[in-house]
Design a protein around this nucleic acid. Structure first.
Lengths: 123, 123
DNA sequence: GCCAGATACGGGCATATGCCCGCAATGAGC
DNA sequence: GCTCATTGCGGGCATATGCCCGTATCTGGC
């Protein structure tokens, strides 16, 4: 599973590289878009990551001017949103992501993809 | 896949924690045992990892006195072998690993496990 | 035997990931 | 209103991962 995950990530990363992001960042940007403005804790819950990991990942996106964070009503919360550039990059990267998705589906079969999705539910 | 991989790794890591190693290190130790003495490049090939990553992972095991490296016939090569302690820890950790393996198989089904193994071949 | 290209490593740079600890803001109970 | 447990973050520590570049060693063709 670890091997496969690395290979799969490498495939997506190669396809997304021209857009300056990797698969982890792509997934993160999509989640931000859906929920913005959203807190770090909420994003961490959505992607099932440690909160501190999420904080650092967001910082990288911020450095690239893809997201911005401000304080929420709750002064503790960091409210994360896409910047205009973030939205542009996300839109531009989507075809590359879909292309990889299709290529991988063709290679391993839609039924196996479905099983991978089930797997995550079971754990 | 990335989510599932993290969850799965966490399960194994928890089971292996009492032995002071994680799932990546466990897999690495097993491969070293099978091929020792073995070069970094060969190990990297076996586990499909970047060679520099392998070098660093080995260094961690070395720091814990689980493996030792010496120069091979080819003076460039690092010949990696298990230390006695490495062997002991590997043997001690195996039941924990098998326990996780069984628990996970029970949870997600042997057929899905088999599909995961096929997946790696296809990529 | 000598040199050029190939091969094995190590180190630097960047990201990803988790755990723990401490700080600040919130909110519930009195 | 005030105290204290809860919640949201950031920073420190450690590992994992990949890419690129430089150095050392080897090897094949001459």
């Amino acid at each position: 599973m670890r091997k496969t995950n690395r290979k799969l990530a490498a495939l997506y990363d190669a396809a997304l590289a021209p857009h300056g992001i990797n698969i982890a960042q792509f997934a993160l940007l999509r989640n931000i878009e859906r929920r913005q403005p959203v807190s770090l804790t909420e994003l961490a819950r959505l992607l099932e990551l440690d909160r501190s990991t999420m904080g650092r990942n967001i910082r990288v996106l911020q450095k690239q001017d893809l997201v911005l964070t401000s304080r929420g009503t709750d002064q503790r919360e960091a409210a994360v949103s896409l910047t205009e550039r973030g939205m542009t990059v996300l839109r531009a990267a989507e075809p590359a992501w879909e292309g990889s998705q299709d290529a991988i589906t063709a290679r391993i079969g839609a039924d196996r993809i479905r099983i991978l999705q089930e797997l995550n539910q079971l754990l």
